[in-house]
Amino acid sequence: MPSAAASTRVEDAVYRRRGDLIELSHAIHAEPELAFAEHRSCAKTQALVAERGFSVRPVAGLDTAFRADYGSGPLVIGICAEYDALPEIGHACGHNVIAASAVGTALALAEVADDLGLTVVLLGTPAEEEGGGKVLMLEAGVFDDIAATVMLHPGPIDIAAARSLALSEVRIRYTGRESHAAVAPYLGVNAADAVTVAQVAVGLARQQLAPGQMVHGIVTDGGQAANVIPARAELRYTMRATDSESLRALETRMSGCFAAGAVATGCEHVVAETAPAYAELAPDAWLSETLRTEMTRLGRNPLPTELEASLPLGSTDMGNVTQVMPGIHPVIGVDSAGASIHQPEFAAAAASPSADIAVVEGAVMLARTVVALAESAEQRDRVLERQYRRAS
């Protein structure tokens, strides 16, 4: 447990900034922006920490990614802020809550950074819904000096050690040959038929998918005119699995289904990744249990440990971060009247009084968890040693 002095200071710091944090959450929610175009949301997320004296700079060659540092201690802690939204349904994943709670955590930890030997790093991570901003930032070295990374995500229930599925997404393009659909259909090579064959193959393959594997997709181009044999058609498919090894097996299985469309129709086809693959979350056990204690202290009722692994919550590029360093991605409960994430009703819930409480309590929980890490000699040494090994 964190010491009374430091834990009280960070908690008090969050409550002092409560109004600012809720205002930030609502401001981001009111102007939803899509992946890699979150310019207003990125600027809003930076503003409060810049005023506090954090050193803010763009990173990874991405217009809407940033790193804001405070302090000079040897224990470097990252706090991830997400702020991208979804097409048409806005912040139905509640990333406004994520950004505001991350800012609250960073501001609180700045109050004790010198005393605890911390460097506090707020990371603005774009394009979680589509594009893998954290993966790109990892590859660019933005996380290299960070010993542990924390964040949280709103959802219908509280989960201390949340899990996720590994994910990859591909675009499949079929190329055939146009012809008049009535005058000379025999001269055409129908790319839309290739799409149909591929989808039937995927549907039939579902019976033999391994537990935890799933696949879902849409047709993004199926032709332009009913009386023209389409020479091009396109699918977009997402594949998920319990871990990266299972995902690779699923990708191999699906590649055969996509090829079947081309073979059956005589089309050519190309399969291309649309974004970096997402690894599954690997929550740090000690950080998760410390966060669970904080959830309970605040009167929340986190999902029992034995049920957490059986309830993976979609996919996230934070999984890639937790594969290379200690990290957590807990879920903080928001009253959504039965709605789940990625539903319009959850977008409304993400700016509700319940979500405002989640912003504040989430920042308190994360900040106190980091204090506990900094004050435990054993755990501090553990994460620093892992960081040194990773850097060497």
Results as ranks from 00 to 15, higher is better:
L48I: 02
R57H: 14
E23I: 05
G53I: 04
E31R: 15
G71S: 07
V49C: 06
L75P: 06
I28F: 01
V56K: 11
P58F: 09
E33A: 08
R57Q: 14
G73P: 10
A30H: 00
H26G: 06
G71W: 00
P74S: 01
A50T: 13
G71K: 01
G61R: 08
F66W: 14
S55Q: 15
P74V: 01
F36K: 03
V76T: 09
G53L: 02
E31W: 12
A60L: 08
P58R: 07
F66N: 03
Y70V: 03
D20G: 10
K44H: 11
I22T: 11
A65I: 12
P58C: 01
F36P: 00
T45N: 02
S41H: 05
F66H: 06
K44L: 15
G53H: 03
T45F: 04
Y70A: 07
S72A: 14
V59T: 11
V49S: 05
K44W: 13
A37T: 13
G53M: 00
V56C: 13
E51G: 15
I28R: 00
V76G: 03
G71E: 02
Y70K: 02
I28C: 00
G73N: 06
S25P: 00
A68S: 13
A30M: 03
H29L: 11
G61I: 04
D69T: 14
E38G: 00
F36G: 03
Y70R: 04
A30P: 00
P32C: 09
A47Q: 10
Q46N: 07
R57K: 15
A47I: 07
H39W: 08
C42M: 13
P58Y: 07
Q46P: 10
I28E: 00
A43Y: 14
V49P: 04
V76R: 09
V59C: 12
R52H: 14
D20L: 10
H26F: 05
G53C: 01
R52F: 15
S55V: 15
R40D: 05
E38W: 09
V59G: 09
L48K: 08
V59K: 11
K44S: 05
A35K: 13
Y70T: 06
A35H: 08
A68Y: 15
H26V: 06
A68N: 09
V49Y: 02
E31S: 13
V76A: 09
A50Y: 06
K44G: 03
A50H: 11
H29R: 01
E33P: 03
G53D: 04
V59W: 14
A27W: 05
R67M: 15
L62T: 04
R67F: 13
D69C: 12
A68T: 13
T45V: 00
H26Q: 11
E31C: 12
L21Q: 08
G73Q: 05
D63S: 15
A47S: 07
E31I: 12
E23C: 04
R67L: 15
L21T: 10
Q46M: 14
F54C: 08
S72H: 09
L21D: 05
Y70G: 07
V56S: 07
T45A: 02
H39L: 12
A30L: 01
G73V: 06
L62G: 01
L48S: 05
A43T: 12
R40A: 12
A50F: 05
G61V: 02
F66V: 04
G73D: 02
H39A: 11
E31D: 13
R52A: 15
S41Y: 10
L24H: 00
V59L: 07
E33N: 11
A47T: 04
E38C: 03
H29V: 06
I28N: 01
Q46C: 10
